[in-house]
Structures are given as structure tokens and as C-alpha cells.
Computed example of a mutant assay.
Amino acid sequence: MQLNSARQAWHDAFYVPRDSQGAVMQEMGLLGRMIQKTDKQRKAGHQAHQAIAGRIQQAIDTLPAHLKAFGNHMYSPMATADDAEEAHEAMFRVAYATGPRMYAKKFEKARMVALGVLHRYRRMHQGGQSEGIDPCPTPEGFRAWLLHVLGLELDSRNWDREWQDFVNACFNACNDLDKAALVPVSSVIKIMKTAA
């Protein structure tokens, strides 16, 4: 396991290498189901990976539930729909509390806008090095994505006044939650690098 970044370490700690995808699909086609195999890898590299992964997983388990869910949604290859839902809820709560005040009629639209921002943030930061690009870099592209994917139509007039501050608050909330979730992983990586 490479300890290049906390984001990559989070992913790699939960990644379980398998046969090629084609071999797995062929097995499923022939047998009609996936079979768990008990072949053990006996290589020292695998054992070292497991030891490091255990330390990273232990650090992740020290997090409060909402931060663990946010990190899992962002980086874990085994993230669940519950992780996604809890990450969205945590981000929305922070953004709504710190962002501009809204009328009750905008509340449900704000939830959907926050879901769109979480999608954008995740796409930008997946891969461990935050090298992704924003899939909706312009307000027009973001509104089109909201309409196409979530069925939410937002008026293009007064975008800056109506939504831009809330979108910024959502990005700030994602950034704050992300940093907080990565702190224990970064600490463990720092300890392991100094011990090596």
C-alpha cells in the first residue's frame, strides 16, 4: 500500500484485490452466482498491505458516524447507499447552518442543490490526489445537471443572489467535513512514515 495521501490510503485500506473483472463475470455467467473463494495469498506484500490497512481502518473507526460516512462515501470502494445518504445529510446540515438564510419554500430545492454539490465535490476529489475535474463548472452546466439527473428546474435569472452563496456554503461544508474525516488517517500515515 502506498501512503501518498490520506484519501488514497482510505481507499486502499478497504480495497480487496480480486480476479480480473472478466473472470468474475464469466464465473457468474457459468454458475449463475458469485462464489467466494478461500485461496489465500501467501506473499509478504499482501501481509504488509493487510497490516497497514488494519491501522488505517482502526483510525477511521475513531471518527464520529457522520464523518466516517462522509469519508466512506468519498473514498471507500465499499461505500453504501447509507454512507451516501448520511454524507449528504451531514453536508446539508453544515451548509444550511453556515450559509445564507432561506425561506421554507426553498428548503427542499436546497436539499437537491446540496446533493448536486456533493456529487461535484466527490467527482473532483476521487482518486486520492484531488485531480478530478468539476463535472459542472458553470452555473448553466450545474442547472442542466440538476434538471437532467434530479428533475430540479432552477431559474437562471438571479442565480448569484438566489443560489450561488448556498452552493459556495455547500462546497465549504464538504471541504470542512473532508478535512475533519481525513485527520486521523493523516496522523496514522505520519506516524508510520516516521517509524519506517
Rank of each mutant, 00 (worst) to 15 (best):
M1H: 02
Q2L: 05
L3D: 04
L3A: 01
L3E: 03
N4V: 01
A6R: 08
R7T: 04
Q8G: 01
Q8M: 03
Q8L: 08
W10M: 03
W10A: 03
F14Q: 02
P17L: 02
S20T: 09
Q21P: 02
Q21S: 06
A23Y: 00
M25W: 11
M28L: 14
G29D: 13
L31C: 14
G32L: 09
G32Q: 09
R33D: 05
M34E: 14
M34I: 10
K40S: 09
Q41W: 06
R42F: 08
R42M: 10
Q47S: 13
Q47E: 13
H49I: 00
H49G: 11
Q50D: 15
A51F: 08
I52K: 09
A53F: 10
R55F: 07
R55M: 12
R55W: 09
I56K: 00
I56D: 05
I56S: 04
Q57W: 09
Q57K: 15
Q57C: 11
Q58N: 10
Q58H: 12
Q58F: 10
I60A: 09
I60G: 02
T62G: 13
T62C: 04
T62S: 14
L63M: 05
Y75A: 05
S76G: 00
S76H: 05
P77Y: 07
E85L: 01
E85C: 05
E86S: 08
M91K: 00
F92K: 03
F92A: 02
R93P: 06
A97R: 13
A97Y: 03
A97M: 08
R101Y: 01
M102H: 13
A104M: 03
A104F: 02
R111S: 04
R111P: 00
M112Y: 06
V113E: 09
V113A: 05
G116L: 11
G116V: 12
G116T: 10
H119L: 05
H119Q: 10
R120W: 08
R122A: 11
R123M: 10
R123N: 03
M124W: 01
G128T: 03
D134H: 14
P135R: 13
C136F: 15
T138D: 10
E140P: 11
G141M: 15
A144Y: 13
L147E: 13
L147P: 01
H148F: 12
V149R: 13
L150H: 15
L152G: 12
E153T: 14
E153G: 10
D155H: 11
S156H: 13
S156M: 12
W159N: 08
D160M: 11
R161V: 14
R161S: 15
E162N: 15
Q164M: 15
N168R: 15
A169S: 15
A169D: 15
F171S: 07
F171P: 00
F171M: 03
N172C: 10
C174W: 06
L177K: 01
L177A: 10
L177S: 07
D178S: 10
D178F: 02
K179F: 07
P184G: 06
V185M: 04
S186H: 08
K190L: 04
K193D: 07
T194L: 03
